[in-house]
């Protein structure tokens, strides 16, 4: 069994790929919830690079950054989904093209 090591560039490339896929999702999807999920995907991509750099420099603080990102993501999900529910109540749709007025 080879204990072959994986260069950290690969992890960073994966993280960049996830982040870009998140941007693509954010741009091309037209459902409010899916757009929100694309943002979560971008956050996850960034988290992976934080963990990778924490591994590279043997610093625990990189992991703590991820911890804080998770907290912010949780708060963001709670408030964001509440907003989505409120919008759905007012408009009865989740398509972003139809939710283009500033007031509810």
């Amino acid at each position: 069994m080879n204990m072959q090591a994986v260069p950290l560039n690969w992890y960073l490339l994966l993280s960049a790929a996830l982040f870009s896929l998140g941007i693509v999702g954010f741009l091309i999807r037209r459902n409010l919830i899916t757009i929100f999920m694309s943002i979560e995907l971008m956050l996850n991509g960034v988290n992976l690079s934080f963990v990778t750099f924490a591994h590279q420099w043997h610093m625990v603080k990189g992991q703590i950054f991820v911890f804080f990102v998770m907290v912010v993501a949780a708060a963001e999900a709670a408030v964001g989904l509440a907003i989505i529910i409120a919008v759905y109540r007012a408009r009865a749709t989740l398509a972003v093209d139809r939710i283009d007025l500033m007031k509810l």
Binding site: L8, N9, Y11
Partner: peptide, 17 residues
């Protein structure tokens, strides 16, 4: 991003040990 990352030197590697 990918070109920057591929060219990046001095990054280590990760293994199970």
């Amino acid at each position: 991003i990918a070109t920057v990352l591929v060219k990046a030197q001095g990054l280590g590697a990760a293994s199970l040990s």
